[in-house]
């Protein structure tokens, strides 16, 4: 599934569109602890989180993640948005919870 298809499947809002929507997503990783994501997320995973400060863009870039999905209607702060734009890290948003988004995505990938 490409990032574009995933955004459609989950009806996500595009918060930061600069980046590659044709990347093939390998699955999801859900965490709010940056050190955990650095340690455990896999390449081209989408990262599901409610963290909004600027280090999320750096982590996504370093781990070569497909995109960041912000849950609970959270918006990135200005610095995070700027950094994500520069680093071409796509940020998507949803009013849904981490639990629900993880649930839908996990079950989709398992099929």
């Amino acid at each position: 599934m490409t990032l574009k298809e995933l955004a459609g499947l989950l009806t996500l809002n595009v918060i930061q569109p600069q980046g590659n929507f044709d990347v093939v997503v390998t699955g999801g990783y859900t965490s709010d602890l940056l050190s955990d994501v650095m340690g455990n997320a896999k390449e081209r995973n989408v990262w599901i989180t409610c963290q909004t400060h600027e280090n999320i863009a750096a982590v996504a870039k370093l781990k070569n993640l497909a995109a960041i999905i912000l849950v609970n209607g959270r918006k990135p702060d200005e610095a995070a948005l700027k950094k994500a734009r520069e680093e071409k890290v796509v940020i998507l948003g949803t009013p849904e919870s981490e639990f629900a988004i993880s649930g839908v995505l996990y079950n989709h990938f398992k099929k």
Binding site: G27, G28, Y29, T30, S31, N40, I48, E98, F99, A100, S102, G103, V104, L105, Y106, N107, K110
Partner: peptide, 10 residues
């Protein structure tokens, strides 16, 4: 992991 645990319960 969180992602999988949420997925299973969901």
């Amino acid at each position: 992991m969180m992602y999988e645990a949420c997925g299973i319960l969901y």
